[in-house]
Amino acid sequence: MALRRIFQLASSLKEIGNHYLKPLQLARPSLVASIHTTSPKLDLSEFFEDKKNWTKDNIQVGRAYNQAELRLKSNSDLHKLWFVLLKEQNMLLTMEHFYKQNHALFPNPERIDKVKISMQNLEEVVRERNRAYWQLEVGESGERPGEERHNQIGLRFFYRKFEHNIPCEAHKKWARHHTHQYRDKEVRRFLLLLNEKRWQEKRRALNRNRRAVRTILRRYPDVDREALAAKYPDVDADHISIQRSKEVRPHKYIPPESS
């Protein structure tokens, strides 16, 4: 509130005359933390780490940039940060190779992962903004279009579309290698067998779980039902009979439990 009042005051003062604003402008730098910058080297020595770090066993660094704090930055800031990260990544990869060639231990290799995570997050934020801009201006997401298609043996895959120099209809050579349909009898037979195989796998997994639950219930009748349901969510423990089937009954007579 106080800040808003100051701005209102400033805007009203602006109408009167700029010289009234001078005290406010002078006061501003003390509010902002002083910015530290290093002068860029701009040559091939940027591919190598600072020489004073070469003798160090452990190089302390911070964490990766997360998306929340990258969202606060402007587009130009993100663009600059991308190149800082890119150079850092190149430097780390060069140093890793360098240490490996010299049979030495590369200190803190997790730095590479941190840079990669930062770059991923930055790209995601840029993409997010791009999507928002496109939705606002065009009504589309602006992402690369794609759809699910079938290949020649009838398996589904996600086809990512792209621009063509020659239209697809006119490009016979391209169309020969990109057949996204199936007609043959053999393919239908193959799909039938494939579905059967997948269903059998599913059925076997369910039976295996049922058998496991039955064994547990037989051994530990007071087992925690909730934990059991959490471990085997596809099996209904209340509808499983713990009676031994005739096939697995041993030769010796076991009287039924009286409980």
Partner: peptide
């Protein structure tokens, strides 16, 4: 290319 993602290693 606004965000180039190519890496480069300087090697001996």
């Amino acid at each position: 290319v606004f965000l180039p993602n190519y890496w480069m290693k300087l090697v001996k």
